Simulated scan of single mutants.
Amino acid sequence: MRLVAEFKIYCDSLPLVDVVAAVPDARVRLDLQYNHGKRPLFLITVNGGSEQTLETALTDAYDVGGWTQIGQAGDTRRYQIQPALSFEEQLGDDIDDLAGLEELATADAFIDRITVEPDGWRQTGWFADREEFSKFSSFWQHNADFRLDRLNRVETPEPPGEGLTNRQYEALRIAYERGYFEIPRQVSLEAIATELDITASSVTERLRRAQTQLIEETVATTWPTLPESPQ
């Protein structure tokens, strides 16, 4: 049973945390480039924040050996970073089980997103089964503060829209093609009802059910559970 998990590791010693702490309004995504010797290079994608402040923080960071801006498009900048420290030097004072950290690299898991935050890393990862995820979460629970935000079973999804009824699909298609969802609207609800030969209230119901179905099949699967509303 494959799993996808979203979680936060609170650890001030993780790479680039100090840099992001200096530019808290920047959003920084980290990718590792493993084909560059023993220690992978870092590739970060930065949105927002002061460019000058960020680059000053990179220059001053104790764990950055060098950096190069390799591209910019609008407010998005990309940097390649040479780490100044080994993992042992970076984390040795805070993590007791460095051997266990190395073992995680061989686990049946894939971390496909790392967001660097001022107090740690937020990650999304795919795990072969619950046992593999337990190894990962247990390590970080022992060595740092770990918070699980989402854990879902991965199944083969149907293409978005497969859960719609034929009537919902027809109503959604006509509403879209006639310009009902444009701003401003190009067609009235009553006109769509006439074309479908149903009442306007029936059109509203079909569109709402169709939109709810599409939301549940797509973006809703990525949202963490909301806290209970106060009574």
Rank of each mutant, 00 (worst) to 15 (best):
Q186P: 00
E158D: 13
F127P: 04
T218M: 06
D60L: 10
G65R: 04
S137A: 14
D60V: 04
R78Y: 02
E190M: 02
K38H: 13
A21F: 01
R185G: 09
F7W: 05
V19L: 05
L214Q: 05
H36V: 10
E217L: 06
E190A: 14
L151W: 00
K8F: 15
N152M: 06
W223T: 10
S50C: 04
L101G: 00
E155I: 11
V19P: 03
I70Q: 01
G37P: 00
F7C: 08
L58Q: 05
R150N: 02
I174L: 15
N166I: 07
L14S: 02
S229L: 14
D119S: 10
L54M: 10
L98P: 01
T124I: 14
V187E: 04
T59F: 12
E195S: 10
T222H: 11
F133W: 11
N47E: 14
F87L: 11
P83H: 03
F146G: 02
Q82S: 11
R173S: 12
L43M: 11
V187Y: 05
S201R: 13
L14C: 04
S138I: 00
G163S: 14
R173E: 12
L54W: 02
T225C: 01
K135T: 02
S137R: 09
D93H: 08
F42H: 12
R122I: 11
A210L: 03
A26M: 08
T204D: 10
L30P: 08
L43Q: 10
P40E: 08
A99G: 13
D97T: 01
T45M: 07
D60G: 03
D149E: 13
L32P: 06
D145N: 06
L226C: 05
D94T: 14
L85C: 09
T218R: 05
L3A: 03
F146N: 00
F146D: 00
R27S: 14
G37N: 03
S50K: 03
L85F: 09
